[in-house]
């Protein structure tokens, strides 16, 4: 069976914080959206849940790059996650879910599971 997906508007550009992340609530649960204006593409989205602690905190980590790859460091125990692939740099067996994210005018669109009630307030 193939899961159908759809694009949801989750917030606007004004909600983003340059070089950092914010968290949004989606049908898939909490997602972290990062805005790195000095990269192309500039938007990344991964699960907000930190796999090592279970807490929803990844959007609050420090971003940057390691070996040229965009990363975020978990604010709790400091593991690094590749924003493109979700791979954990410290532990190969761990990977966080990544999401496709797009800028549409002023709106940020995120690709999640299809749903009828749009979880969009923005």
């Amino acid at each position: 069976m193939r899961t159908r997906t759809c694009w949801n508007s989750v917030c606007t550009v004004d909600d983003l914080v340059p070089e950092s992340g914010i968290a949004v609530w989606t049908v898939d649960g909490p997602v972290a959206v990062f805005y790195l204006p000095h990269r192309l593409p500039a938007l990344f989205a991964i699960s907000h849940a930190d796999p090592f602690s279970g807490a929803n905190v990844l959007a609050r980590g420090i971003t940057g790059d390691l070996g040229g790859e965009p990363i975020v460091a978990s604010p709790l125990y400091k593991q690094h996650f590749n924003l493109k692939t979700g791979a954990c740099l410290e532990d190969e067996s761990v990977r966080v879910k990544t999401y496709s994210v797009l800028l549409d005018g002023n709106r940020i669109l995120l690709e999640t599971r299809e749903t009828h009630q749009e979880a969009v307030a923005a």
Partner: peptide, 10 residues
């Protein structure tokens, strides 16, 4: 060079 990380930024 690059964009920084959780070591140099703080």
């Amino acid at each position: 060079k690059g964009h920084g990380c959780d070591i140099c930024k703080p």
